[in-house]
Design a protein around this nucleic acid. Structure first.
Length: 479
RNA sequence: CGGGGUGUAGCUCAGUUUGGUAGAGCGCUUGGUUCGGGACCAAGAGGCCGUGUGUUCAAGUCACAUCACUCCGACCA
């Protein structure tokens, strides 16, 4: 009877229903709550703390490379948004409009920013006079609104939080370098801190950002084989500069237009972390961004000295720069074990009377549940090593998933065959003609993800038209 | 925006077929016993049955509308 009793309900198995598994984790790991505004979520403290860690890491990277943070207005007057044709065409279908101020109908509608290129451009046109003013390397952390039809927590919401960098440069070469340098930072963030392997590459013209000359991307593979566009970096040439009149007196005494970039990563990354590392017991968090890296569970807490010892270890770990926390609540130890597994805490430290007697503790890793008895003398260094190894192990596991689910194809039939049982990345050659790219999407259901920087010769001709191939493209179904 | 599913306690759901006084488990509160994988006992609190309009003596239950969530497509960070 007792074993039949329903305890705290478990999450749906990811093999059974991946989408439901994702939703269960979001709710049960206390990452987000739904609000009464459709498509908008409450980012709860645990998820926000993950976001703050991502912010801290990436903000550090861009500060180090000379970028500065600013805050731009939330509203964009319609006339301003209209200035760049491709841009407005790309975003107009999904912007929210403000038409009233108080009870007064506005002369001109205001768009709630879906992205802030236009605002940065207007500002740059005011402050850039001379080549000596360049480059301007600005970034802002904010939320933006896009009126999405179907929404999912973190992956696609009507309001989401992100950073958007907007830079203007003296030359095209310098702007192109900025675009690529930022993409490198995104890849570094993903790989080294989020433990997410990514495919770096360039978007095809069909898939590039509205108004961009070139768009670069990092594409990650989720556990189910679908792709998640995890960060994009755009080179704009001087298109926006011409539309907004961002001119400067150049070194030759003439007037030139600036060359521009923009780039962004968002709270979508949290969804990516869930779907890259999570398992049937819940979240698995990369140590670099885990709000709690070590959860200390006192066993037989009521016994003399146990809680004191737990607090002492917490203080030691904190002093060593490790995010440790004692759970001194009166839940049973078993409850706490399950709870922090759900929340993806990388390392659990158990400390009880038996351990205290032997001057040791028990460490349990979240990824493989491996238990080790650890002497307290070397605790800090042992945990530091364990966290490093943990990050590497989950990266390797994710890499194995990526490499095991990326296949080459030389015909449309082979492409269809490759994703028959589950979504995968498919590498195929391409002639460069947009009609062929569209034909592949039409027939296989896969849009192109990117033209990877690391090119391979997986064939000689385009699988659609049979003409000589120019590039290898990766295709895949995306979130 | 199209197709399916679901809205009843904080959570998971029963009750809807055949209209007749609002239910269970978990969670929560209080007290006690426990504590190395989701502990146990006892006593409590907690609901405008998503929302609106109809039908009816009577609606959680029937009809219509609407909103939200969710899944699958099309569109997108």
């Amino acid at each position: 009877m007792a074993e039949d009793k329903k305890l705290v309900s478990a999450i749906t198995s990811m093999d059974e229903d991946f989408a439901q598994w994702y939703t269960d984790i979001v709710k049960k790991a206390e990452l987000a709550d739904y609000s009464s505004m459709k498509g908008c979520i409450v980012v709860r403290p645990y998820a926000y703390s993950i976001w703050e860690n991502i912010q801290r890491i990436f903000d550090g990277m861009i500060k180090e490379t000379g970028h500065e943070n600013v805050a731009m207005p939330l509203f964009i007057p319609e006339s301003l948004l209209q200035k760049e044709k491709d841009h407005v065409e790309g975003f107009a279908p999904e912007v929210a409009w403000v038409t009233y101020g108080g009870s007064e109908k506005l002369e001109e509608r205001l768009c709630i920013r879906p992205t802030s290129e236009t605002l940065f451009c207007e500002h740059y046109s005011h402050i850039v006079q001379s080549w000596r003013d360049l480059p301007k390397l600005y970034n802002q952390w904010c939320s933006v609104v896009r009126w999405e039809k179907t929404t999912r927590p973190f992956l696609r919401t009507r309001e989401f939080w992100w950073q958007e960098g907007h830079t203007v440069h003296e030359t095209a070469e310098e702007a192109k370098k900025e675009t690529r340098d930022i993409l490198e930072l995104y890849a570094k963030l993903a790989r080294e801190y989020l433990c997410m392997p990514v495919v770096m590459g360039q978007k095809t013209d069909k898939e590039k950002f509205a108004g961009a000359v070139e768009t670069y991307t990092i594409e990650a593979m989720m556990h189910d084989g679908k792709a998640l566009q995890s960060g994009t970096s755009h080179y704009f040439g001087d298109g926006f500069a011409k539309a907004f009149g961002i001119q400067f007196a150049d070194r030759q005494g003439g007037l030139s237009y600036v060359h521009q970039t923009s780039w962004g990563i968002s709270t979508r990354l949290i969804g990516g972390i869930i779907m890259t590392h999570g398992d049937n017991s819940g979240l698995v968090l990369p140590p670099a961004i885990a709000p709690i890296q070590v959860i200390i569970v006192p066993v037989a807490m009521h016994k003399e000295g146990v809680l004191d010892k737990a607090r002492e270890l917490e203080a030691r770990l904190k002093k060593a720069g490790i995010r440790a926390k004692v759970d001194a609540s009166d839940q049973s130890p078993g409850w706490k074990f399950a709870e922090y597994e759900m929340k993806g805490v990388p390392v659990r430290l158990e400390i009880g009377p038996r351990d205290i007697e032997n001057d040791c503790c028990v460490l349990v890793r979240r990824d493989n549940r491996e238990k080790t008895v650890q002497g307290l003398g070397e605790l800090e260094s042992a945990i530091e090593a364990m966290l490093r190894d943990f990050g590497k192990a989950i990266y390797d596991k994710a890499l194995k998933n990526l490499e095991g689910n990326i296949v080459s194809a030389s015909t449309i039939d082979e492409m269809k065959e490759a994703i028959k049982d589950k979504p995968r990345f498919v590498k195929a050659m391409w002639c460069g003609d947009q009609a062929c790219e569209e034909a592949i999407k039409e027939q296989t259901g896969m849009p192109s993800r990117c033209i990877p920087f690391e090119q391979e010769q997986v064939g000689d001709v385009c699988p659609v038209c049979g003409k000589p191939a120019k590039h290898m493209v990766v295709y895949g179904i995306a979130y």
